[in-house]
Amino acid sequence: MAEQSMRRLERELRELGGRLRGPQAPDVTATVLARLEPSIPPASRPARRAPARRRRLAVAAAVVVLAGLLLAAPGVRAAVLNTFRFAGIEVHLGGRHPPPDRARLPAETATSLEDARRRAAFPVRVPAALNAPDRVTVSGGTPPRVVSLLYRPGPGRPGAIRLDQFDGTATPTFRKYLTGGGQVERVSVDGQPALWFPFPHTVFYVDRDGRDQVGAARLAGSTLIWQAGTVTLRLEGRLTRDEALAIANSARS
């Protein structure tokens, strides 16, 4: 992360801290002094046994729901043109050289579909439009962060297909860098919004601390990303938009 954005974040956190309010503090003076009694000179001793005022704050806990605020204001968009998130994927416009074109996800290991389903903390979807996957891998620790289904090229399928799926709520799992031209298209999968990237672009795996994993970077072909519940899915391969959509719409857990 750039030093500059780190410093900005630190400044913002301090400023935020200055504004944070909890509930009104209780008056614990009497209780504390009563407990300190032996060390207090008799002259300043308070009235004995002031009633403890426990739990009087039970109603004071004002919880403010903060989610979803970023999307609302039109002004936000202008300020954030260079980076945005869709589902569990962060998209950057420009600023990266293409990485090596073959890379593996961290600790990516082959397994069976049944085993991947057992180990993953989210429902694993399989597209009915394709046959059984040729390979299934899990990556990113225990429970696995990403489950990938891989399909070899075959009759009527000129290139390999890869379907990555992951729980994409708090931090992004992949980061895409769009350096070439090309039009991203809005489509829908199962009636839910989705994005179609019909051109090659750089994809980095983002570790749990929010860092790009350079070793897991690669050049992705055309890619469809969509969200089902809290799970983000990205389908990648030499596919037309309609082929990708047909596969995506047939994915069931």
Partner: peptide
């Protein structure tokens, strides 16, 4: 700090994302 930075990347609706693009 790194994690916060990553989490703060704005999430856009597809429409807004396309406008941004």
């Amino acid at each position: 700090l790194r994690r916060l930075n990553a989490m703060l990347a704005p999430r856009l609706s597809p429409e807004a994302a396309l406008d941004a693009l």
